[in-house]
Amino acid sequence: MTDPVITATNLTVRYTIGHGLLTKKAYLNAVDDVSLSIDKGSFFGLVGESGSGKTTLGRALLRAAPITAGEVIYRDDEVRYDLRALSKQQMKDYRKRAQLIFQDPYAALSPRMTVRDIIAEPLEVMGLTRTREETDARVREIAAKCRLNLEHLRRFPHAFSGGQRQRISIARALVSGPRFVVADESVAALDVSIQADVLNLLKAIQRDMGISFLFISHDLSVVAHVCDHVAVMYLGQLVETAPTRALFARPRHPYTSALLSAIPSLDPDDAGNAQKLEGEIPSPADPPPGCKFNSRCPFARERCRLEAPALRELAPDHFGACHFSEEFDFSRGGATGSAKGLQQA
């Protein structure tokens, strides 16, 4: 945590819901008081179920969602921006430095533009190149990095498979030379063999170009393989953040542990005896009091319904938001045993 590219402090994104004439205004905190920092050159994973606020958080860090409260600081070798106080000029500049890769490579590319034009568009819109030759050179360079050849550049997106399309969207996101990229479920729509290919490409780009990634995914096994740091989100809040290895070796929050044990094992003899989560994620418009996870937590006690736990450092660089992190071992296998022990107690 020495040299962060992004530092968010108490970040909240609030949306207004149900503002009819007669109904009372209600609010929903899609992102609720989140603090995190992403190191330079890091591959930072963000996981959670749908509705947990991952995408909103990612977009807030790009200033593509409104920041209601808190602070987000972006910093690289050249500039330091406070995202809530960007001038128009700074905003334009930030768009070059921070980019987004979308989930669905079929929806993200215009069917009426050639691949060359798709990749060149950000350069032209942002005015990064002066001549057509310069643009072409830049497009060719970035296309090569994403393993697209010159032949590909003349074609239209419909001629490409899902994996190739995703490489095109990656090239488009990288062409402006960003320092920070949010990849939002960028492999979720792909077949496993293509998924592996795209993940390897993203890792290579992170290493070679020194770009920091926020990698949003619901798939913990993918995150485990590519990310060096992981944050777990539930109902708009971070419940745990740690270096990947530490998180998977010993999850300190029961939600992380439940997510881990829900991954279907490749071993047919491993008859998922681990703890399963009951029910579904509650509506963020009406979160449970106390710890937001208490309605589904097998370990929940009276205190969890009254008092919201704060994110605290439980081991070096390992943060968790659970009242009972020290008391119970949430790691796989041990979880069921402790839960039973708790009921007896």
Binding site: V192, Q195, A196, N200, L220, A224, H225, L260, L266
Partner: peptide, 24 residues
């Protein structure tokens, strides 16, 4: 074999992800 090698395995974080080469 290719499909299984391409799959991220939660029990073996060291394993390289090997895509099946080429496209269908």
């Amino acid at each position: 074999q290719g499909l299984l090698n391409a799959l991220p395995k939660i029990n073996d974080l060291e394993a390289e992800l090997t895509p099946v080469p080429g496209d269908i």
